[in-house]
Design a protein around this nucleic acid. Sequence first.
DNA 1: GCAATAGTGTCTATCAGACAATATAGC
DNA 2: GCTATATTGTCTGATAGACACTATTGC
Lengths: 269, 269
Amino acid sequence: MNHRDPKHPQIGQDDQDETSFLRHYDPGAFERPSVTVDTALISAVDGALWTLLVRRRQHPYRDGWALPGGFVDVTESLDEAAERLLANKAGVQGLFLEQLYTFGRPDRDPRTRVITVAYYALVDRIRFAGIGTGDSDDESERMVARLQVDWKGEAGGAVAALDPEGNPLELAFDHADILGMVVLRLRGKLDYTPIGFELLPRQFTLHQLRSVYETVAGRPQNKDSFRRRMLTSGLLRATGIRQQDVGHRPAELYEFQQLSEDEVSSAND
Amino acid sequence: MNHRDPKHPQIGQDDQDETSFLRHYDPGAFERPSVTVDTALISAVDGALWTLLVRRRQHPYRDGWALPGGFVDVTESLDEAAERLLANKAGVQGLFLEQLYTFGRPDRDPRTRVITVAYYALVDRIRFAGIGTGDSDDESERMVARLQVDWKGEAGGAVAALDPEGNPLELAFDHADILGMVVLRLRGKLDYTPIGFELLPRQFTLHQLRSVYETVAGRPQNKDSFRRRMLTSGLLRATGIRQQDVGHRPAELYEFQQLSEDEVSSAND
DNA sequence: GCAATAGTGTCTATCAGACAATATAGC
DNA sequence: GCTATATTGTCTGATAGACACTATTGC
């Protein structure tokens, strides 16, 4: 924070007194980047990951598709900005929402320097279906898009987005990179945190849970050991309720439940 | 990116033409946050994690200690800013350097809204010793500080910094939170990425490697299985060289080497 | 009964932890 | 030889993958 760059004279070395410093501060007097928040709202449907995109109505990338986002208000935290923008643009609140990474290539926006703090949010496919068909507060056009993850041996990199018919969409800015990092993050956290449950409704079968894991991980999960792992993890609570009208033996429904350490150890009897 | 907030009129909905838009853009005309980069330079010495701090010479937190950092230049990327500031303040280049998290509480800096993109860098204890005693380009006072991680059962949270005599240091802003997140990140990546090697000189013994792992993880690592895991990982290359003057059977020195998949499989013979 | 999936029990390979035994340096 | 640590080999318990078998629904 000690900086002598003449472009930033207001926060310099020579101020002797705090109140005097604050009195002389002029926030508009030197060049600053803009800061935005962009959020990838992710769901898992039909064995693929999906996200919500907003049609751009101005340059650059006019008529292209972007992650819902916007400027950070000077009075709100980054988390609050992400919450607010997701509520405005997607009409959802209270989702799992976590900061992903900050993208700041100087040329990522041709207008001016824009640094974006990327977030991702997770939602179950039932709520996601409602979001995809609703309207934004600002009436901007929305679309759900399927993520096309074709990484070779070495994982990582940009991820394309396809419309429901399978046609590629033009993604604005570096949003394909953001989506790629979302997939990497999800895969990395899948086995060590309960993010899989955030993609499912409150009650679900073990089969549905495994399907979500396979969708996120991008590879099949062994059926037997997956069942064992989940049942002994202490993260599930059996409801005693079973599926209805499935044409085969109905599976039991489970709920996500974070147990205490005591309960975990006694659950392993 | 669709935003109607009147505080951001320059990037609005109604521009019909890109060049016209760019011509009318005025970057200084509305309220923007400042963006800084702060980097925690981390090393592992004597069974503890250490970092480099810079003495603040102005308000707020005058005479307190801060992570080396500074403003992001409008023409450079975030990674470049972190590289540049680390070179200026610590005189080191070419280290492992990775973005950590972006901290943006509106009140984290009383002067104005400052959003900081936190990075962490890793360095072996030999180079770190040189950095701690050197001088910054801007002649600001530097100190190496030991991280005191006392997390109870639930891990996470702020981490205190102690001077070499063990006295607590006053950390500026939310830098104790940044250091806490660094420790969390290191622990999370330790078993899945080769970050442990970044904390060691080019050649090292398995004992030294295990010591680094124990320092980062904050708990002992089983000696036998650690040796086995490392030797079968394909990440190590035996040099044939042995320690000198150690008063006991000298251990072999290894180097870090990322092998191809073929080499990994044949290394398991 | 048939089809389809849920759920249980068991065997095996792999790997971590524990521990014993041997090797090699300085003194 | 003595001390200290390196290095190797072996045994055991926990867990994942594989597979056989039973259970329960709609039709």
